[in-house]
Simulated assay, not measured.
Amino acid sequence: MSNIKLISTSALAKKLSMSKHQLDELLLAAKYIVKNDDGFKLTELGIQNSGSMKKHAKFGEYIVWDENMEIPNKPINQGKEFYSSTKIATRYNLSARKVNLILSEIGFIEKYLKGWTITILGTKNGGIQRENNKNGIPYVEWDKSIFENSAFLSIIQEVKGEAGESTQKKIDDSKESSFREKFIAKHRATDGHMVRSKAEMLIDNWLYMAEIVHAYERKLPIEEEVYCDFYIPTGKIYIEFWGLENDPKYAKRKEAKKEIYKKYDFKLIELTDEDVFNLDDVLPKLLLKHGVQTY
């Protein structure tokens, strides 16, 4: 009896720690699949390399592969120009180190023992993993779309002190503006942050006393204008405090926001009123799950 396990392209991509789009590009380049009006079609070459069709009663036919198949490594970047952090830095009159720190801050890359590795979000935004041939140190290069990426450009402006009024206008024009107008930031936390509720003040104070660097109402590194309650750069963790549970409008806003976090696979810690009164017990455990140790 065969021990071969067949899994979908999405499942295979997840197993290989890459985006489905990235795996599709590899399979297209190797001519294992072709694109048509209905999506992707399996080729004879694909069938020879473990591909087959499976039918689902609800979703129809889809392609499956041997979970241990050898992934084709034909280059998918032929004809494309890619830019290193050094080249990007030159355009903005910054250092390559600063550019990498910016890309790390928005969750596109992660620090390795030496060098940088790309994240799933980074692959979705035009990045490609490279390795230095001499010393094996990993680094990431980017296609030209990085120069139009709103999250990246926004941080560039902030770092260079050019954001100012344009950033504030985006905040004022966002869908959350009515919420911000209703709940004025009038509570001063120990670290000087002006926050919108006593609960947020307690959370901010806890993070400050635990010596955890954090930002308040940081914009998520995505196209949508969405702002978190707190952001912890170490670990790329977002914290949301859900209050006003009985308010229908707030409940709708909460669900929409949770969908955004799920869509981009961001690390999220959710806190309730009950949690706020037990932060010493709750937060250390939740932070540790994401690799951040306290005390």
Rank of each mutant, 00 (worst) to 15 (best):
N125P: 02
D143K: 12
I4F: 05
N125C: 04
F179C: 01
K35V: 00
A11L: 11
S104G: 00
N205Y: 04
K80S: 08
G79D: 05
K198F: 00
K169C: 00
M53I: 15
I212E: 03
N36H: 14
L26A: 10
M53V: 10
E176D: 13
I222K: 09
S104E: 15
I232D: 03
F179P: 02
K5I: 07
I4T: 14
E255A: 15
S17H: 14
H187L: 03
H214W: 07
A89Y: 13
E44W: 05
L268S: 06
V99Q: 07
D229T: 01
N77W: 11
P284S: 05
T234F: 10
I109M: 03
V282I: 15
N77T: 14
E223H: 12
P221L: 09
H56F: 04
V64S: 04
T272S: 14
S50R: 08
K169R: 14
N68Y: 13
S154V: 03
E81Q: 15
I232G: 01
V140Y: 10
K198V: 04
K111Q: 13
D265R: 13
S178H: 11
M201Y: 00
D265L: 09
I7Q: 09
L45T: 07
K236Q: 12
I232Y: 10
R188M: 02
E148I: 01
G243Q: 05
M53Q: 01
V34H: 12
M194V: 01
K263H: 12
S95V: 03
N73C: 10
I137W: 09
V292W: 08
N36V: 01
I212W: 05
G79F: 03
S150W: 05
F40G: 04
F152C: 08
E162L: 14
I171R: 14
K87D: 11
I71D: 07
K80V: 04
Y139T: 09
H21D: 13
T272P: 03
D275T: 09
A215V: 08
L244T: 02
F183T: 04
I237L: 03
L113M: 06
S8T: 15
K111H: 11
F230R: 04
A29S: 15
Y227N: 00
G51P: 12
E110K: 12
R91K: 13
G122N: 08
I171Y: 10
G161D: 06
T272E: 03
D24V: 07
K170D: 06
V282W: 07
G291K: 12
E61S: 15
I269Y: 06
A29P: 07
K198S: 06
K31E: 06
